[in-house]
Amino acid sequence: MTEQATWSPDEIDEEVPSAARIYDYLLGGAHNFAVDRCLGEKFLTALPSARNVARLNRAFLRRAVVALAESGVRQFLDLGSGIPTVGNVHEIAHGLDPQAGVVYVDSESIAVAHSELLLDGDHRTAVIQANLREPGSILRHPETRRLLDFSQPIGLLMVGVLHFVPTRADAAGIVRQYRDELPSGSFLALSHFTADVEPDEMAEVVEVMRHSADPVHPRTRDEITKLFDGFELLDPGVVGTAHWRPNEPDASAEQPGGTRIYAGVGRKL
């Protein structure tokens, strides 16, 4: 029997767990189903630090947006934006400049539906339901073109999403298509699961997520670094999320799960 959820779009299959809703569960959100919570618990068994991994990934997103805004970026394209939680990109960006333009993109209907509710009346932010593997449809979408000026630097956010792109789909080629459309001075902020640390543990995570709508495909640090081809990496380079410009540098090394996801920010040359 499926759950009765007034917040769920009618077309959602409530029997198939999704990465967006599992992530929401790990972050303590309420927009998930029993199947998501069940798989989320298996995820926690495979990766006991998973809740902290999710929190650190979210914290990296916040720090990256602030860093880009401080570098003069006033428009953001957030791919795989997920289910809204406190500290969304537009909240951070508008806190620094109310006129900043933000376009969210996600393929998950619940994520899009809740973003639309959150953004009702906000004319400087929009959400598009699309697959990031189709750059053309996103980059030429009317809402993208309404809010983003492609003659000015853009902050491209691909945080915690490319590890859902399998090897055969050529993640580097996908990033390159977006990069080629961005003006010089734009930035890419990216984070990605890796098996470089505790490979057996990550193999268990891969097995757990194989039973969801969004299997995970970890990559090595070298593979993730190559995703930044055409971008100049900002210090400290590609590092664990806990180590990318932490607010409390002395405490970064103590964060459980802080190296399960690599993160970095690069500027287009």
Rank of each mutant, 00 (worst) to 15 (best):
S71M: 10
V65L: 05
A59F: 02
A69R: 05
F43A: 12
R63W: 04
V73H: 02
D78P: 15
N57E: 05
L79H: 08
F43Y: 11
V73D: 02
F43H: 06
R51K: 11
F76G: 05
L47Q: 14
R58A: 07
L61S: 04
Q75G: 08
A54F: 02
L44W: 10
G72S: 13
R58F: 11
T45I: 09
P48S: 06
E70F: 03
V73E: 00
F60Y: 15
S49Q: 15
A46F: 07
L44T: 13
R55T: 11
S71Y: 04
A50K: 06
L68G: 02
L68P: 00
V65Y: 00
D78S: 14
A64N: 05
F76K: 09
S49V: 15
V73W: 06
F60T: 08
L47V: 15
A46N: 13
A64W: 01
R58Y: 12
E70Y: 03
A50Y: 02
R74W: 00
T45F: 06
L68F: 03
R62T: 12
S71E: 14
N52C: 10
V53M: 07
A67F: 08
E70N: 11
L44S: 14
L68W: 03
L56M: 11
A64K: 00
G72V: 15
E70L: 10
V66F: 00
L44H: 10
R55C: 03
L56H: 00
V53C: 09
L79W: 04
P48T: 08
F60R: 10
F60V: 09
L44K: 15
R74G: 01
R63F: 05
S49T: 15
G72Y: 13
L56G: 14
R55N: 01
A69E: 01
T45L: 08
V53N: 05
Q75L: 08
G80Y: 12
N57G: 13
R63A: 11
L56F: 04
L61A: 06
S49K: 10
L44V: 14
R58D: 05
A54N: 01
T45V: 13
L61Q: 04
A46L: 11
R74C: 04
S49E: 15
L79K: 06
S71Q: 14
L44M: 15
Q75A: 10
L47E: 14
L61M: 13
E70V: 03
S71K: 14
R62D: 07
G72A: 14
R63L: 07
A67T: 14
A69W: 01
R62F: 05
A69P: 05
N52L: 11
G80F: 12
L47P: 06
L79E: 07
A64G: 04
R55P: 02
